[in-house]
């Protein structure tokens, strides 16, 4: 599969201010939607080919909205419709379809910290040749709290990170740079390995930025699975 474009968005106080969001997202859109939108629009702007389909990879989805919704139903017995809608794991891919006008296949893959590899792997099995892949996860205070309370557990061992990586792929084109991934495989994750939220996506962006060839292994201690991404440059 050929990489046509890619863009990484890691939010900082400054670039959040500079985000050029449409009116529909500016005010009340969940933060994770904004991350996904920022990376996706930048990647799409880099190529003249409009992707026909979307695959979003996310470990935890719109966790912030999910936590707020659960908080609300336990404190006031009432949920907010907006938070409920956003809490569904595919809310980012639905939003991207609307904002970018992409009406083809629209999938969301939730493969824990292997979601980057899993989304790339899934691209082979959709009918459209061009696909916008967006990997997105968010950080929130509750996750930080959990991280500090159990420092030798699961993917919290190395802390968490948030951001979005968007890649436009043509899976019928074999020219460089090429990207592929294995299926997510059940395994016993070695105790020396941990999966860190969003780190695989950042590592992949680094390889693509530097135009290097290489492999990235990811592990999910929570799902007891692993996967491998391969990047080939000429």
């Amino acid at each position: 599969m050929r990489v046509l474009a890619h863009s990484l968005f890691i939010p900082t106080a400054q670039n959040r201010e500079e985000l050029n969001l449409p009116a529909s997202l500016k005010r009340r859109a969940p933060r994770i939607w904004k991350l996904a939108y920022a990376a996706a629009t930048e990647a799409v702007a880099q190529t003249t080919i409009k992707p026909e389909s979307i695959i979003v990879g996310t470990a935890l989805g719109a966790l912030d909205e999910t936590v707020r919704f659960i908080e609300k139903i336990h404190t006031s017995n009432m949920g907010s419709p907006r938070q409920f809608i956003a809490s569904v794991h595919n809310s980012m891919s639905g939003m991207l379809a609307m904002e970018l006008g992409i009406t083809g296949t629209n999938l969301t893959i939730c493969e824990s910290t292997n979601s980057t590899a899993a989304a790339i792997h899934a691209a082979r099995f959709i009918p459209e040749s061009t696909v916008l892949i967006v990997i997105v996860d968010e950080q929130l205070p509750l996750l930080e709290k959990i991280y500090h309370s159990c420092s030798n557990n699961h993917y919290f061992t190395e802390g968490t990170q948030e951001g979005a990586l968007a890649i436009v792929l043509d899976h019928t084109d074999s020219r460089f740079p090429q990207l592929s991934a294995t299926a997510t495989q059940p395994c016993t994750v070695p105790s020396t390995q941990s999966g860190t939220l969003f780190s695989t996506a950042s590592d992949l962006a680094d390889l693509l930025d530097k135009k290097y060839s290489g492999t990235i292994d990811s592990y999910s201690p929570t799902a007891n699975c692993s996967a491998r991404i391969t990047v080939k440059n000429d």
Binding site: G61, I109, S112, A223
Partner: peptide
Amino acid sequence: CARHEPAAIAGLLGKRYGATGVHTLST
């Protein structure tokens, strides 16, 4: 938190039945 993840169910089923690959979709 680990069990909150949809992928944790796929991982458990994969191990239980000996699958060689697991894929979790949520649309």
